[in-house]
Simulated scan of single mutants.
Amino acid sequence: MVRSAPTPASAPFTLAYALVLLGTGLFVHLGDPRTVHDLLAASSTDVSHLFQRPLLTLLASAVWVVGGFVSLYLPALLLVLTPLERRIGGLRTAGVFLLGHVLATLLTELPVAASVALGHLPHSSLRRLDYGVSYGLIACAGALAVLLRPRARWALVGGTAVLLTVSSLTGVVDPLTGWGHVLALLTGLGCWPYVRRGARRRATAAPADAAADRANG
């Protein structure tokens, strides 16, 4: 577990993001319940908010974690993002996370908007409480998987798929969010050229940096 802990040198993005989520998680548990509910509702990536303020909504929804600071999403985020960032760097890790978060959100909410416009769903479907890090986290899990050896890769992908299936079947997540999780995983797996290129560049740069440090020392 010690190796999974991010440090300012090895995984600054993961460390900073985890601290933000820890802070908002503590606020969920310690803050005024009404204020907490209002902030979560305002950060929800439902159709109504996405049409009114898309960029702010997408960013705001990613600073909250479902379950607060006791959520299993926090240790899962450390276990996934830390090794990914160590392999491809903070900017690329943030890029994969945001891509999964944004794409999965839009690909699940836009069909809802179309269904409401066509009269297949009631207008109440335009507002729902949907926030959290799960889409970005699952996309990063998919991206990390393509960098692992085959046995570890399929274990990670298979384990993630099983967890998503169980969550959907047991009603832990609603069907729309369940589809979003699947899309996020596929998005992460689809990032394989991007993450492998980043991993190669980082692996090539590491010996050069070490040699420069020895020369300066």
Results as ranks from 00 to 15, higher is better:
Thr14Tyr: 09
Ile138Pro: 06
Leu169Thr: 10
Ser43Asn: 08
Gly132Ile: 12
Val182Met: 07
Leu78Ser: 02
Arg201Asp: 07
Leu99His: 05
Gly178Asp: 08
Gly95Tyr: 10
Leu58Glu: 09
Leu106Pro: 03
Pro175Met: 05
Val70Tyr: 15
His181Trp: 15
Asp213Trp: 12
Gly89His: 02
Ala206His: 10
Leu91Glu: 13
Val195Arg: 00
Leu164Asp: 06
Thr14Cys: 08
His101Ile: 07
Ala94Lys: 02
Ala210Ser: 12
Phe69Val: 15
Pro207Glu: 09
Arg202Leu: 14
Ser115Phe: 14
Pro193Phe: 01
Ser167Val: 08
Asn216Pro: 00
Pro6Met: 11
Phe51Ser: 09
Ser115Gln: 14
Gly158Pro: 03
Val63Ala: 13
Asp213Leu: 14
Ile138Gln: 09
Asp209Pro: 03
Leu55Pro: 03
Gly180Trp: 02
Gly25Leu: 07
Arg202Val: 00
Phe13His: 08
Ser4Val: 08
Thr204Pro: 00
Val173His: 15
Gly198Tyr: 04
Leu55Asn: 04
Ala155Gly: 15
Ala16Met: 08
Pro150Ala: 11
Arg149Thr: 13
Leu137Val: 07
Asp130Pro: 03
Thr45Trp: 04
Leu26Ala: 13
Arg197Met: 03
Leu98Gly: 03
Leu110Phe: 15
Thr108Val: 06
Ile88Thr: 15
Leu144Ser: 09
Asp213Gly: 02
Arg151Cys: 05
Leu22Glu: 12
Ala113Met: 12
Ile138Tyr: 11
Val80Cys: 13
Ala117Lys: 07
Gly90Lys: 00
Leu98His: 00
Ala104Cys: 10
Ser10Asn: 09
Ser44Gln: 06
Ala114Glu: 09
Gly178Trp: 02
Val47Tyr: 11
Gly90Val: 00
Ala104Glu: 06
Asp209Ser: 11
Ser61Glu: 02
Val65Gly: 02
Leu74Phe: 14
Thr24Lys: 04
Thr82Trp: 07
Arg202His: 05
Leu106Asn: 01
Gly217Arg: 14
Val112Ser: 03
Asp38Asn: 06
Ser115Trp: 13
Thr45Val: 15
Asp32Glu: 15
Gly188Val: 00
